[in-house]
Design a protein around this nucleic acid. Structure first.
Lengths: 350, 350
DNA sequence: GTGAAAGCGCTAACAT
DNA sequence: ATGTTAGCGCTTTCAC
């Protein structure tokens, strides 16, 4: 240990206490202090208590970098999501945080804002911060995802949820977007809709393409009905007005809407109501996500429940189990979460 | 540097590349590599390029711990919030993340779940992780907040937002809850409400106590009206039913409601509608936060706009400016953000 | 423009 | 039960 000959008092006030300070104070070795601090029972109880007291007295706090530098683990999980300010995403994050926290992991969260470039930057940051594991929901901007490959070479597990790669070796937590979209469409057909419209986003993301595919396939199975898909640049509450303007110019005007998220569906509903169009009589509507807004709008919005909190918890748990060596990720490829159609008044004609 | 005599090849594959590996490969010193990697222009451009190439070739990534261990900075900001899955909070977090990311900081987020004990644990974790700064919104469970004092002794700036300490030396980002609550109450009175009810949470938190005080003071200024405050254990959409049951048993039944958050206000509205009570004619309602749901419910909910995203951005910016030495936190005590009453149909009688 | 050397604070293998 | 020792990978004087 270096000696602080000059200005000792000032330095002592400024400097962080280390295990060496404790060791010196108690006339024992640093290793003993290190062990005592970890509660290692091989160390005399008496010594342990003394160390603890002295640590508190000196305002000691463990230096995670020094520790990480040695142990090569960070106890940190990186999370990259498109945006964190949606009901669905914050539910996912809350679930992850809960699990991570429970097992002693911290979470670093970053947003890609739907930009592949930002996603890459974020991935690089996570990589350099040496997160122990990574949880990702992709942007809908297309990219080769090569920047996630590097993690594999370092044995850092990556799991995806919701928006997952089309093809990947990584574990994915998803719902069966195809099936549930087909179900929703079938429901609209059963309610007597003849001219269906699917409103979604222009994207190659599995989430949206699968929903669109489910919609189209189901429409095609139906002999006397028609289906169109409207692909927009973004989906939000505010888009409602513009969307409705478009819809009302279509020939024939659709009588059934399957919208890829609830906020947009609600935006449409509000605008349709302004135009005096009756829901569900003239236009039956089904949304997606079971956002709280779906129960608040009048009439209540039929939607697909998507258990975000559970998805988050499961993804985090799976990652942590893997890190603790308690499960073998090679065994799991994909976890399909339960999503189901919730029928409410916005689509119920019978 | 240690030599890896045995099993060199295997080790080379597993081991992380370091600046020493690059140095050896290029026959230069580690210091030069270190400088080159940082783009230090004192190093020959040619050398810098070579180093860069070699780094990529070896899959080198900077070891932040070693770096942090030396520089004693983490470029990480800790965030502790009660819950992250509300519209308001995720807007705040999104704002913070945006700013933090822009200035090269990472964010570690944790939830206290309204428990003071968990808040303390989280603070301790942040402390030990040596965050460069901390942004906090408090639980509504009361505590002495002593666990935030330690940061000051280490010169780690702490800023609070939304739910802030009653007395503190730290910078706080808030709205004027008192004033805006008084305004909302005044508005209800102006609409002809005689029996007002404020629905809030049982808490000493500045946010709720100030809103309640604003309400009460304004009611007291009014000669011919009456005001009660209902303090609950929690506020949520789901509480609506139970709250309405209580309200309808009151004598006299209130004709004006000022609810401390929008979700709860909406919960009440839905339940009131079920009971056939007319809004705003029989019961005028004002909420708080300007959550998207306020524009979705029928009739639209009058509320108080609370600029969460801006609050988050400002809090983060202030913290980072301070970390960069660009502002003096001693100069700022409290930043009052703009919040204003938004009058919609749920309270408009005239 | 580049190198040598010391040390940030901790842990763990090995000794006693 | 405790101590000795040797680094983890980086940055940063100071020297040339």
């Amino acid at each position: 240990m270096p000696s602080f000959k000059e200005g000792k008092i000032t330095k002592t006030l400024k400097r962080e206490a280390t295990i060496y300070d404790i060791a010196k104070e108690l006339n024992i070795s640093a290793s003993t202090v290190s062990r005592a601090l970890k509660g290692n029972t091989i160390i005399n109880l008496n010594t342990r208590q003394k160390v603890q007291e002295c640590a508190e007295k000196l305002g000691y706090r463990s230096n995670t970098f020094a520790s990480n530098l040695r142990t090569k683990r960070t106890n940190t999980i990186g999370v990259i999501v498109p945006r964190l300010d949606s009901n669905f995403m914050s539910a996912c994050l809350a679930g992850m945080e809960e699990v991570a926290n429970k097992y002693g992991y911290n979470m670093i969260i970053s947003q890609s804002h739907e930009s592949a470039k930002k996603e890459e930057q974020n991935a690089l940051t996570m990589y350099n911060k040496r997160v122990d594991g990574l949880i990702v929901s992709l942007t809908f901007e297309e990219s080769d995802l090569s920047y996630f490959k590097q993690f594999k070479s370092k044995n850092v597990p990556v799991v995806f949820f919701d928006r997952v790669p089309r093809e990947t070796e990584n574990v994915c937590f998803v719902i069966d977007n195809y099936k549930v979209a087909a179900n929703a469409t079938k429901h609209l057909i059963e309610q007597g809709c003849k001219n269906l419209l699917h409103i979604t986003i222009q994207s190659n993301s599995n989430v949206y393409s699968e929903r669109a595919r489910g919609f189209t396939d189901m429409v095609n199975k139906c002999n006397n009905c028609n289906g169109e898909t409207l692909r927009l640049d973004s989906l939000s509450l505010e888009n409602g007005q513009a969307i409705v303007d478009k819809i009302l110019k279509m020939k024939p005007i659709p009588d059934g809407l399957f919208v890829a998220n609830d906020m947009t569906a609600v935006g449409c509903m509000l605008s349709l109501r302004d135009k005096g169009i009756k829901i569900p009589e003239q236009m039956a509507i089904v949304g997606f996500n079971n956002d709280p807004v779906s129960t608040i709008v009048t009439p209540q919005l039929s939607t697909v429940s998507y258990p975000g909190r559970e998805a988050g918890k499961l993804a985090a748990k799976s990652l942590i189990d893997h890190l603790k060596g308690e499960n073998n990720m090679e065994l799991t490829k994909e976890v399909i979460l339960n999503a189901r159609l919730i029928i409410r008044d916005s689509s119920k004609r019978k």
